[in-house]
């Protein structure tokens, strides 16, 4: 009998609640009860939560900041856009764009996971800031490589067109599927024996080694999962935008991911989700009403959270309401 089943698992209620709510919104949207602009908000939210959770697996669960994590988002997006533009003729003649999309995504995700394994094997043996710096370097290398790509538009940009009747409604469900996959993978990693090993690494890596955690392998696996999830989101994002630009490799997206994790609370499954909600709300409000000050305000909020709530919002709720603890792990 697996003794680890006695470990108290964080509740999965919030995850199922999110899936149900976002699912219902999708159905309502498809049936025409919800406007496209409202649905767009939910799609943005799914993307924010998705990329936050993708980074969480390595940063928040394991304690290694993948600063250039956007590189995998970019790779996923690039190959999706590349495949869709390469087969644009077939699509125009009525070919199914989804098979091509899926192919592009699989290539992007596969290469991201492979890249994470290779880079991880080289760098995750080192501790501390080396890993963060190496991932930034990796992002720049891939960005400049990508910019040499001369597609139809040149300068690393790719445009394609998959417009079809009800494209937006269908795309909502593309996002939704990616959302469900991300939530479930991030949750399973968190509650599995593997996840406990990652937590041990985060809290004290030497102590993890002396209780028999194969730390190097665990870290590499976590990095591979994080990379794959980020690539999925890069891929669906490109699909929705009808393009890919080198902007998708911008470190600003990396910073977004990190900030959402920090605001929400490190080490938890629920933290990045809460962080994404808060970040998105602030982001929308500031961009609508005070666009010039948007990033200044976000910056101040981050400094405030780091100074006053080092455990993030999830940490605050857990310490104030011990009864709710199992929902905010």
């Amino acid at each position: 009998m697996e003794i680890t089943k006695y470990l108290k698992k964080p509740s999965s209620y919030i995850m199922w609640l999110l899936i149900i709510v976002f699912g219902i919104v999708g159905v309502q949207y498809y049936a025409g009860y919800i406007s496209a602009s409202t649905a767009a908000i939910f799609m943005d939210l799914m993307k924010f939560i998705g990329i936050a959770l993708s980074l969480a697996v390595i940063m928040s669960y394991t304690g290694y900041v993948s600063f250039g994590h956007v590189v995998f988002f970019g790779i996923g997006g690039f190959f999706t856009a590349y495949e869709l533009s390469k087969y644009s003729q077939q699509i125009l003649q009525g070919g199914n764009p989804y098979t091509i999309f899926l192919m592009g995504m699989l290539i992007g995700v596969g290469l991201s996971v492979l890249l994470a394994a290779t880079v991880g094997a080289a760098v995750l043996r080192l501790r501390g800031a080396f890993f963060a710096i190496a991932t930034i370097g990796l992002d720049y290398v891939i960005l400049y490589l990508e910019m040499t790509y001369k597609g139809g538009a040149g300068g690393g940009e790719i445009y394609f067109n998959v417009s079809r009747p009800r494209f937006l409604e269908e795309t909502y469900f593309v996002f939704f599927i990616a959302f469900v996959i991300t939530l479930i993978i991030a949750y399973i990693v968190k509650v599995s024996k593997f996840g406990y090993g990652l937590a041990a690494i985060r809290e004290d890596e030497d102590a993890a080694e002396v209780i028999g955690v194969d730390t190097v392998r665990y870290k590499i696996y976590a990095f591979m999962i994080a990379a794959g999830l980020a690539a999925i989101w890069g891929s669906v994002y490109s699909w929705r935008q009808f393009n890919f630009t080198p902007e998708n490799f911008s470190l600003g997206i990396s910073v977004d991911m990190i900030v959402m994790n920090v605001i929400g609370g490190l080490g938890t499954f629920i933290g990045p989700i809460i962080g994404a909600f808060i970040y998105y709300i602030i982001y929308r409000l500031t961009n609508t009403y005070l666009p010039q000050l948007a990033y200044i305000i976000l910056g101040i909020i981050v400094v405030a959270v780091v100074s006053f709530l080092p455990e993030g919002v999830a940490g605050l709720i857990r310490s104030k309401f011990p009864n709710l603890r199992k929902y905010f792990e």
Binding site: E2, I3, Y6, L7, K193, A199, A200, A207, V210, G212
Partner: peptide
Amino acid sequence: LVPEGRRLWPQLTVEEHLIMAASIPRSK
């Protein structure tokens, strides 16, 4: 090895420490 300075995980309970250690193939 029981390392110097205990090296526990402050956020985990007593039993979680014990169960985590027992999850290695050797003691399962």
